[in-house]
């Protein structure tokens, strides 16, 4: 019994040392972080080791959604006022090409097969684009004002949120057929899958809440209103072991940390103003946030649950991706 207990402690100590080593020396930190600056028409490039902006890319008008190719060869940016997707090289920062992104492109996700799934807010559609040549692979009719797009890890499911129809549309891939429509709170904005693709979480802007959805039955199994009335949550994602959910709190100016199982709010981590975008490093040690109205990116050490750096970027940072 004592031996067992001692062993457990020993393992815990070793684990803590390893975690501390990684978080201190950043062995697995992203090489670069790319941030779209909505009102500066640019992408800021942050060095993942030093948390300093090392380059700024002139990308096009009103850049918002950003995504990276599965092989990390290219980064895609929705340049809303140019009605286009811009493609740049994550190593040289050279803008390689631009292609038609539909009217006012905003949020999209990159599928493991390389295709882009983008919501077309004015047309009540989701469009599948091949970023090699910008050709349209398919179109899926969804609810009004579609916004957030999420792709499951195995690529067999895509969720599109429709803000005015208050719904999550679960789309089967490659059939591109809607297999479930799930009513959630007012103005759903973003969604994420668990790794197994069995559960989805979604934020609703106006009802200021997070919903948990069982995807096999299409039923809502949990709901958590965020404590702050100003919370107009946007991005949502799970930590690496899927025990916690991070929610960008919008005007609540914090990241809510929820128990992924019960949705109980465990913590709120203060960041800058109007936080929307989230990205987690592959090892789970760093969470990056776009604090739009503070014109900065916050870097959170997830072990400490605290901001360890703030990086001034361009005006109104919107979204971000990691190159790692």
């Amino acid at each position: 019994m004592y031996m067992l207990k001692f062993k457990v402690i020993k393992v815990a100590v070793i684990a803590a040392v390893i975690t501390a080593t990684f978080s201190t020396f950043g062995a697995n930190l992203p090489k670069r972080i790319f941030v779209t600056n909505e009102k500066d028409n640019s992408v800021s490039v942050i060095d993942g080791k030093t948390n300093v902006v090392i380059a700024t890319i002139a990308i096009g008008n009103r850049p918002r959604g950003i995504g990276i190719a599965p092989d990390l060869s290219e980064v895609y940016v929705a340049i809303s006022e140019d009605n286009a997707i811009a493609v740049f090289d994550p190593n040289t920062y050279e803008v390689l090409r631009k292609f038609d992104g539909g009217h006012d492109p905003e949020a999209f996700a990159v599928h493991p097969n390389g295709n882009i799934y983008i919501s077309n807010e004015d047309d009540a559609k989701a469009t599948v684009l091949n970023p090699e040549n910008g050709s349209k692979v398919d179109e899926i009719k969804v609810g009004m004002e579609p916004e957030g797009v999420a792709v499951s890890a195995d690529g067999t499911r895509v969720i599109v949120t429709s803000e005015s129809t208050n719904m999550l549309h679960v789309i089967a891939v490659p059939e591109h057929k809607i297999i479930n429509n799930i009513l959630v709170g007012a103005r759903p904005r973003a969604a994420t899958f668990n790794r197994a693709g069995t559960i989805a979480y979604a934020t609703s802007e106006i009802s200021g809440e997070v919903k948990k959805v069982d995807l096999s039955s299409g039923t809502i199994t949990g709901r958590m209103p965020l404590a702050d009335d100003r919370a107009k949550p946007k991005d949502v994602l799970l930590n690496v072991d899927e025990s916690k959910l991070f929610v960008a709190g919008g005007r609540a100016n914090c990241i809510f940390v929820l128990d992924a199982h019960t949705l109980e709010i465990q913590q709120s981590i203060p960041v800058g103003k109007r936080v929307w975008g989230l990205a987690l490093s592959r090892d789970g040690s760093r969470l990056y946030t776009t604090d739009g109205a503070s014109h900065q990116v916050s870097v959170i050490d997830t072990a400490l649950s605290d901001v360890i750096a703030t990086v001034p970027v361009g005006k109104f940072p919107w979204g971000l991706v990691l190159y790692e």
Binding site: A124, G143, M144, S164, T165, N166, M167, H169, I178, N181
Partner: peptide, 8 residues
Amino acid sequence: EANAQGEF
């Protein structure tokens, strides 16, 4: 808009 939602 109601029917666009109702359709689903």
